[in-house]
Each structure stands twice: as C-alpha cells, then as structure tokens.
Design a protein around this nucleic acid. Sequence first.
DNA 1: TTTTGTTGATTGATCAGTCAATCAAAAATA
DNA 2: TATTTTTGATTGACTGATCAATCAACAAAA
Lengths: 211, 211
Amino acid sequence: MPKVGMEPVRRKALVDAALRVIGDHGSLAVTMSDIARQAGVSAALAHHYFGSKEQLLIETIRSLLRQLRRDTVAALKEARTPRERLSAIIRVSFHADQFTPETIAAWLAFYAEAQRSEETRRFLVIYARRLRSNLLADLKALLPADAAERIAEGAAAMIDGLYIRQSLKSAPIGIEASIALTEDYVNALLASASPSPTRGRKNHFAPSKDK
Amino acid sequence: MPKVGMEPVRRKALVDAALRVIGDHGSLAVTMSDIARQAGVSAALAHHYFGSKEQLLIETIRSLLRQLRRDTVAALKEARTPRERLSAIIRVSFHADQFTPETIAAWLAFYAEAQRSEETRRFLVIYARRLRSNLLADLKALLPADAAERIAEGAAAMIDGLYIRQSLKSAPIGIEASIALTEDYVNALLASASPSPTRGRKNHFAPSKDK
DNA sequence: TTTTGTTGATTGATCAGTCAATCAAAAATA
DNA sequence: TATTTTTGATTGACTGATCAATCAACAAAA
C-alpha cells in the first residue's frame, strides 16, 4: 500500500471526511480520530498532513467555498441577461448539493466557529461579500445604485435566513419554495423600486434615524 | 453569607452569567468554571443547582426566549392595526437588547447546538413558529391566506438572515437599516400581492414541486 | 440538630498533539 | 542486475491538558 505521492490523495480524503463528519455530527466538536477514521487513516496521519485540527477545519471550509464558487461560475456562464443572472445566483444558492441537511449543518457550524476563529471568519466574510457583489453587479444594470444595494443586501439576507431556518428541520421549506420566495422578493422590489424605469420611484428606504 | 432562599438568586445569576460568557466567547464550548466564576460562585454550586451543564444551557436559552416573548407582548400591546402590529414584530426582532454582538453570538451558538441537542432544537423551533405565526396572524387580516403564508415565511427568513449576517461583523447593517429592509420587503409584497385588495393578484408562488 | 448553601479536592474520561518505530517504494550504487 | 541506502507514508502508544461531574466536609441559619 505505501506508495509515493499519497499526500494530495490523503489531504482530499481528510477534507471530504471532515465535511461529512461535521455535517453528520452538526458541530465542529468532532475529534481528529472521527475524521481520520472516516477517511480510513490514523489520527496521527491527519496531524502529519495538516499540523493541527484548526488547519484541517480551515481547509475544509475553503473547500466548501471553492465548490460554491465553481457552481456559481458555471451557472453564470449560462445566463444571458442581468435578470437571468440574478436567477442563476439564487438558484445556485439553493442548489441540491448545498441544501442537504449535512451541508447546512456544516455551514452553520462554521458560522458559529467564526465567532472565535479569525481565519474562519475571514472566509465567511468572503462568501458574504461575494454573494452580495454578485447580486449587486446585475441589480445595478436594472436599478439606480442605492436601490440596487438595498435589494442585494435584502436578497442575501433572505438566502442566508432560509438556510438557517432549514437547519431547524421543522416544516422544511424545500428547494423550489425557497427559490420562489427569493425570486418573489426580487421581483416585488424591482417592481416597487422602478414602477416605470425612468422616474417616479417611491423611496421605501426612509432614512429614519435610530430612536 | 450563607442564608436561606439563595436558590432562585443563584439560578438567575448563573443563567445570566452563562448568557454573558457564551456571548463573549461566541460558543457553547465554555466551561462550567467560566460561568460560575462570572456568577461569583464555584463550579460545584452550578452543578448543585442545575445537575449538568446541558441543563444550565437549556435554562439559558429558555431565558433568552422568555425575554423575547416579554418584549413582543409589550410591543404588540401598543399597536392598533394589523399593519402596526407587523411593524411592532419587526421592530422587536431588532430591538437593541437583542441585537448586540454578544446576544447574536449566543443565538448563533444555540442554533449550532440545536443540531445535536434535541431539547435545544425544540426551543428554537418554538421561536421560529412563534415569529411565523405572529406575522401570519396580522398578514391574514390584509391578504388571502396563501399570500400571507408566503410573506410570513419570507419575512421570518429575512429577519433571521439579517441576524446571521450581523454575526460576521463585516459591514454591519445597523438596527434601523435592518428594520427598513424588512419593512421594505413587507411593503413591496403587500403591494404586489394585492394591487387592488379585491382581485387581480399575480401568483408569485408557483406551486412547482421539488424535482 | 437538622437543613440549606457552599466549596476544594478529586476522579474519570476525552482529546489534540508528539514520537519513535515500521514498512515499502524509489534511488543510488556496485 | 543485485544490493544497499534513502525517503515518504503510516501507525500505535504515549503525554499533557482540559473539563464535567462527584464527594466529603464545613458554615450558617432554622
């Protein structure tokens, strides 16, 4: 069995195993032994390749993000108009792979971890920014910048909120319904922010100051 | 110092301490010693009154929920019309006490814990249901039931999503902006769901089933 | 003296991380 | 080609730290 060139194979196996174990267990409080067992190697080997548990977890979240970016790029490639691209972004967010209980649990665990681990937080901030700016780019083609920014913020929040609500597994909402809900939001706010594309917008964002 | 009738005092002190320590630390992986120290007693006493760490955490989340319900009931008492009540519910969700980094971190930690602890999950489900049904009750006074249900779901998701995004502390959104965003959503969907209150609604919620 | 409140010390379990040793492929050398 | 050396892969066993939970004991009311 012992051969040369095992490193990339083991690293991938361990990262994949970590994702699965974390997803099943619903928490980052899993042992290196659990992860290593899932990957079919010893815990010592996991330490050998990653140095520490924290580092393995960092690599794991990176892999989650990489997958999401791959999916997003692929989906955007198919879309023609800004409006289509918006739908593509929304669809990817609820893509079947991402929306399993295990993956949702893993995301949630990383969000919690981000409260303590600066590096984990950085990665999640990257995700949040990316989602927001993807939405923003296309919204700006349809709306004035200030309205576009608000809607991007709102849509991103709704997507994240649908995720977290899904994590409770009570009255699960379903992929299609989640997409529909987010699309509805975008449609309704596009309509209300530019009833006619040129003028007469109502300002829903009353700049009321904190009480 | 030892006097009789300490039990309720200590219980409250410990629960409050737990909330603070969890909020600061951003995780439930805090020790009984940490909590007890914050409350000014020994770890053994915390075990004496709560039996186990898990039980103390359960009581802590209950207290969080109790506070939220108190605030909600109070806010609803002031509101007259269904539309006012909707605004009251939204406002309470982002009430200053609830929207501090510490409290948000605590909520997030409990969401993560809910993946493992059945009892924690039950409490969060109660919260989710309560938010949804509060919104629903007033929306039903303004809209047909099916539209009301969708908007309630969407608004609840947006509220939770704004929370989770806030937890990342990058580009924090702020209380008033969060309220405005949610209000905007409700306004826009009220408008789009009943352009004239009687007929002509568009059905944004295509009942497409999950593939 | 009984009850209630309280703690320091201890126990037992769990885990991340380390280390020395083993094994087999690859490379170097004869 | 045959033999030796080197190197990467791999692990079991161990260590040190942490922590929840327990317990025996003590102090102050009742």
